[in-house]
Design a binder for these strands. Structure first.
Lengths: 203, 203
DNA sequence: CAAATGTAATGAACAGTGTTCATTAATTGC
DNA sequence: GCAATTAATGAACACTGTTCATTACATTTG
């Protein structure tokens, strides 16, 4: 049945077109400022069409989230390559913070936005799982070799993630303005803070 | 001029009524889900009236933020009373995390929401400044007595705030679901993580 | 080929949102 | 009592996500 094959293909192509367009627009303008109508206009279809391929705007967010997690994992694999466990951990930290600073809207929809995972947590576990696993692996090396002042693997993972996320998200939400630091100095401050933190918990 | 006095009084009373109602509704339903119309309905006035007292919804947020920061500062003063600098620091950490867990919507509008301070940073500096100053003071005691593995006061303040904020905000946004922990165990995990963190940076 | 079927796309409509502003109501000063 | 000032209104505007009866098209059947 060549016809049903083609139809299937067209369907996935259409879904892909919507997903890619949404990704681009979310990245440029943010999730909240991107409307279904504007996505529809961008692909030259009517608003209703999008609902034939995605249940709602949240489902579009899941998709983009999945891809964003994939990108972050790629960055980890590319940037954190040292064979020294501690240096690798530092590289992960740097990579995470730089990713957040360079892709604010993407970071926002991955880690700050409210929308999803209240409902469907399985999707989120699958999406974010690999990135978190990368950190856990990395930390496992450090802890098993007794290089850190932290002994519980999962607690340590949580802590390091929280610190990095705290630095990035407080900055993205402009909450660091209460410290009088010039805008352009902030990236360096965040990176250096993270490194000082890792140094402090290193034996 | 008794008349102008009374008018002035009525005006501030009205403003206070709106502020207090908004505060209550933000706290219960969150900032996003509370509409100007619903606030107006609650105080039995028309929507337009609110704009005679507040420039826009953001300005209402500033007000509530100010009060929320005040509340957090009160909690700090009440909970962090130890004369031992390190114990006092631990108390601040516990208080901060508990505040976030017990007042999720308030915490949200203080530290996670997007809206304001992109424009007006002075207000925010005044609002959050006192809370941050409390932490800085506390840390200054620790660092000047050489009790911590962190030497730069502002860097240390940033780090500890970021860690606490990371823990709370990742939890409020359900991002900790990728760690398979039962819902009810999380408060304890966050508190214990914070304490382990402080222990790790203590000499 | 023509008619019938199935399906993909539409866009108006619904119930919301923040915000504005001409109109109305009430109060105050003379 | 009347004019002037001020306060409150609520309809209107331009949006939002979402639904659904209707239309247009492609495919299958007779």
């Amino acid at each position: 049945m060549g016809v049903t094959d083609r139809k299937e293909r067209e369907k996935t192509e259409m879904k892909e077109l919507i997903r890619a367009t949404a990704m681009k627009m979310f990245l440029e303008d943010g999730y909240a400022k991107t409307s279904i109508r504007s996505i529809a206009e961008a692909i030259e279809y009517s608003p209703g069409t999008i609902y034939l391929y995605f249940k709602d705007k949240d489902e579009l967010l899941y998709e983009v989230q999945g891809e964003a997690y994939g990108q972050l994992l790629e960055v980890f694999k590319r940037e954190a390559t040292s064979t020294d466990p501690l240096e690798k951990l530092r590289q992960v930290g740097r990579a995470y913070i730089n990713f957040g600073l360079q892709n604010p809207e993407l970071y926002d929809l991955m880690f700050i936005i409210r929308a999803p995972m209240n409902v469907d947590e399985e999707i989120h576990k699958a999406n974010g799982g690999n990135c978190f696993a990368f950190l856990v692996d990395c930390l496992n090396d450090c802890i098993s070799k007794n290089l850190l002042r932290l002994t519980d693997l999962h607690q340590a993972s949580l802590l390091i993630w929280s610190t990095a996320h705290g630095l990035v998200s407080l900055n993205l939400r402009c909450r660091l303005k209460i410290m009088d630091q010039p805008e352009e100095a902030i990236p360096e401050i965040l990176i250096r803070s993270m490194e000082d933190y890792l140094a402090a918990v290193t034996i």
